[in-house]
Design a protein around this nucleic acid. Sequence first.
DNA 1: ACGTGTAGTTTCGTTTCGATACTAGTTTTC
DNA 2: GAAAACTAGTATCGAAACGAAACTACACGT
Lengths: 201, 201
Amino acid sequence: MDNNVTSTDEIAELLVYLGRAARGGDAASDMTAAQWTALRFFARANDVSRTPSAFASFHATTRGTASQTIKSLLVKGYLERHESADDRRSVRFDLTDAGLAAMREDPLRAVSEAIDRLDAGLKSALRQALPALAGELAAIRDTVAFGTCGDCRHYSGGAISYCACVAAELAPADLGRLCINFAAREGRKLASPGFEPGETR
Amino acid sequence: MDNNVTSTDEIAELLVYLGRAARGGDAASDMTAAQWTALRFFARANDVSRTPSAFASFHATTRGTASQTIKSLLVKGYLERHESADDRRSVRFDLTDAGLAAMREDPLRAVSEAIDRLDAGLKSALRQALPALAGELAAIRDTVAFGTCGDCRHYSGGAISYCACVAAELAPADLGRLCINFAAREGRKLASPGFEPGETR
DNA sequence: ACGTGTAGTTTCGTTTCGATACTAGTTTTC
DNA sequence: GAAAACTAGTATCGAAACGAAACTACACGT
């Protein structure tokens, strides 16, 4: 097939297309794309990652901009601010009930629906391919990768879930949470050519 | 069951994350994300789709904004303007040699690389899943879907490639090109030949 | 104690983008 | 065959999103 010529670049292009298509959506809400991303992040990140700096890193922006985005969500009453006891410079943001309610209006829901309508095989292929892709991309860019604790090298499962990074036990809910300290399994995260997608269980 | 917790919404989220991560990248170039998207679009769209309106639809923005983005590429010398002979309102933009050269600096290349590093199975899974996802999403949103002529309902293969929409024969290169008149195969609800700019209010 | 580094915030100027309005060409209608 | 309705493309203007830089406050190494 001659459409192999266009394969990889087309996939990449589709990725940005979908990413962009997923962002705005409704316009029914008074939330910007950045605000939705922030709200989602704070809904999904674990305790140590729910900070402005982590969000800035996740969103590939500056801390200043991140701070502003967060502030706008504070004003809306979707986030609440908690100062850390350990480090008095640090703050943590949690979703309020209003924030959780707002999440139900997330325009990203349309994308989730679309994914759910996919053939089961394709769906599980996406579930495997996209995290792997995120890892590869982070390696190429030499940036921090984000991933969930369950996929992290610091995590050791078994009877008790344990994170070697935070040196603490993990709640079951944490396994699906984003973590700023995420490190992909199987090798170093820096330009390691031999990434092994493996079998996710 | 426990992987259902992290399944669909996480995939959707990853999609926007990757889409955003793919956009800026280098910052070495003096091109904005919108400009890159436009350049890519005009590099990849077929003859009838290389217009400001089609790009506006593709990029989910207004014609005015699209026009400005295009103008900036004209100034850079990456695009050249061709007025249509059939319809004197209509214009078509083609990449110049400088534009083609600029494409080689496309920050999206990092994403392509990352995709290429993926396991072959995952890669081909992406090649299947992402177009399907784009179609589903467009159906949900009731917007125009973009796709390549080779995947289009109007296309009939065989010895001679023929597009029933334009009522013309297709060059082999067109099969991999984006088309504004794209309609998914197999009983998707139609995307009418004349598309909706979506600027009405 | 001092310097260095980090977390968070604020301010300011640039840039981008969408709403609006406008020109010009095409199609439809009576 | 004109007028109305519609479409393609462009220009203008205001709002806001974003990044850079400066600043405060705290932590940590020496």
